[in-house]
Design a protein around this nucleic acid. Sequence first.
DNA 1: ACGAATCGTTGAAAAAGTCAATTATTTGTT
DNA 2: AACAAATAATTGACTTTTTCAACGATTCGT
Lengths: 155, 155
Amino acid sequence: MSPIGKTRPTGRDRLRDSVLAGDLSFLLARANALTLAAANAALAEHGLKARSYSVLALAADDVRPTQRELAEFLRLDPSQVVALVDGLEKRQLVERQTDPADRRANVLVATDAGRALFARAQESARAVELGLLAAVTPEDHERLAQLLRLLAFPD
Amino acid sequence: MSPIGKTRPTGRDRLRDSVLAGDLSFLLARANALTLAAANAALAEHGLKARSYSVLALAADDVRPTQRELAEFLRLDPSQVVALVDGLEKRQLVERQTDPADRRANVLVATDAGRALFARAQESARAVELGLLAAVTPEDHERLAQLLRLLAFPD
DNA sequence: ACGAATCGTTGAAAAAGTCAATTATTTGTT
DNA sequence: AACAAATAATTGACTTTTTCAACGATTCGT
């Protein structure tokens, strides 16, 4: 019989071999925390955070989202979207346009300055993402995105 | 030539076809938000949240983590761990034991009541996870965990 | 033995999240 | 056409979470 019985791994791997480490929710939370921190750090030089970057991205993409759509998509309270848009609008990066089809709603559109900033920020974001995915092949990258989509958009 | 040019999808898919929706950070954030909300809802009946559940899980697993290890593992500030452990200890679910090897450090151990509660909570957690992964085959489930591990533990 | 570093703790301040109420507008019903 | 109910954005109050610096106790390196 092997001299090694049911040994506990030591040091760094001790927690990584715990039951929790197999938990998808935990892995998701931790991966998200690291990714978010890296993204925020990289976006800081543009005066953005992951949140404002996301809003700017959708505005610059000419999707013409309403604030409500933004809230649902980014899983935020509508009041948080107000603050987020206020910030970007004060910096003249986006514009609120009352939706002609529904004058209660504001549609978000990026200004030229907003598009320019987004283009630059997107570079930083892509660089970070590549760094994080250094250990992942391009095929696995796509596979991962695909699987995450199933979790992120269940319907 | 096709009568359909570069049409924008309408309604629900409008935002989902945006550039942002291809962003791994975004997918991660949204998947995590939904998962976290579901987990918290399910754990509420046990008086737990995802955070306290994680701490309890590690304590019940006999990993004997110090609070510092907990903080690093869960990506929390050490002061947040204090509050978390305070809560669990007040409910007699875990115990602080001063590490004999380093009397500055507290090692976390679950009480019998803690283990019992964790067993029950784990059931709820597993049920939620299965629900979220309804659209994912078991092989893909494992693949997803594997890929997330690369992001969650880059070294 | 001594200074530097580390662990847990506290407390304060900033940021993020939650929620109910309000106005303006639209939708559905009669 | 009139009117009630529903919806979009906004505000303000409140709670929770996060972040940070400081502190006493203990350990580590020299």
